[in-house]
Design a protein around this nucleic acid. Structure first.
Length: 315
DNA sequence: CATCCGTGGAA
DNA sequence: TTTCCAAGGAT
């Protein structure tokens, strides 16, 4: 492997980005800080292609923080659609309220201020400060972590959780110039998203292939086995199914309808039997206990609201 | 610090 | 068909 100075890594990866970057709406010249912030919330753990249509609808509907803040939380959840992790919609709605309340309706400019907003952690705070305001921030997401782990660490994948050493390394790599640092952050992120992918990386198209420590080491296997995210039978699956019912409901849903244990339709149901809509939609095989627990969780998290009339999205 | 929190396309 | 995992955050 040929040792490559950091300045040359900057030039080569930014040069690659200038040619190969995707044309994404939140990168356009007309973007507002709010538009950047909305995109960052939606992109948390969610692929770009699924975000695009919801993003366009949201910005059209709520072009400024005050617009979203003036809407009911339930509308935010409803228009979040099937993006997943609906609590993000709730937090973005709450963040809009805080921006109106404490920041004059404008998205804060500093990472420290951004960090105080609900749903904004170290990554999102740095990303908004950098991409919306051009600030020099250490942006570290899963793509950047993977590129650094391979290019500099010689590992197939980064550690399961973000370490202080990784943050230090990322900070050391950051170009001194503000404008260059922003380009570097987004360029490394894009390289991780398009070339240095988790599975089947496209190394032949990599602008820094000859400088990659992982390739030089013969592409060793990961040190650990990523434990898969369980899904079938989990509360998350049940909560998701319930949210799907509530999003589409035109009136409050009676609790009993949501927590009724599924009935095997193939056996035929006695007259008057309550058939859970969850069973119809998802073939869930959940106990009444799990259904109750999941519904109570949704209410506790503010994703659903219960009145004598039934369960609905919050107002 | 490990776990929980949705969803669906691709391998 | 199952498995993997995608611009994280909160607890």
């Amino acid at each position: 492997m040929i040792p490559v100075p950091t300045a040359q890594l900057h030039r080569r990866i930014i040069g690659w980005f200038d040619v190969q970057a995707r044309d994404l709406p939140w990168r356009g010249p007309g973007r507002t800080p709010w538009a950047v912030m909305v995109s960052e919330f939606m992109l948390q753990q969610t692929p770009v292609v699924r975000v695009l249509p919801v993003y366009a609808d949201w910005l059209d509907r709520w072009p400024a923080p005050a617009d979203l803040a003036a809407a009911p939380a339930g509308d935010a959840l409803r228009h979040w659609g099937r993006l997943g992790y609906p609590r993000r919609a709730l937090r973005l709605h709450a963040a809009a309220g805080a921006i109106v309340e404490h920041h004059g309706g404008r998205v804060p400019r500093t990472a420290a201020e951004l960090l105080t907003l609900p749903g904004v952690g170290t990554y999102t705070a740095a990303a908004v400060a950098a991409f919306a305001y051009g600030k020099r921030e250490t942006v570290v997401d899963t793509n950047i972590r993977r590129v650094h782990a391979r290019l500099l660490g010689g590992d197939a994948l980064p550690a399961p959780t973000l370490t202080a050493a990784e943050m230090r390394r990322a900070a050391d790599l950051l170009p001194d110039d503000d404008g260059e640092s922003v380009k570097w952050n987004v360029a490394v992120m894009e390289l991780g998203a398009l070339i240095c992918t988790a599975r089947a990386p496209k190394c032949s198209q990599c602008p820094v292939l000859d400088a990659c420590a992982w390739v030089a080491a013969g592409r060793p296997e990961p040190h650990y086995v990523p434990r898969g995210q369980a899904w079938a039978g989990t509360d998350r699956q049940v909560r998701g199914a319930m949210m799907g019912v509530l999003r589409d409901a035109v009136a409050p849903v009676i609790r009993e309808v949501l927590v009724a244990e599924p009935v095997d339709l193939a056996l035929g149901s006695p007259p008057g039997t309550v058939v859970s809509p969850l069973m119809k939609l998802h073939r869930l095989n959940a106990s009444r206990e799990q259904l109750e627990r999941s519904l109570d969780g949704l209410v506790a998290d503010g994703l659903a609201s219960e009145t004598p009339a039934g369960i609905s999205l919050p107002s």
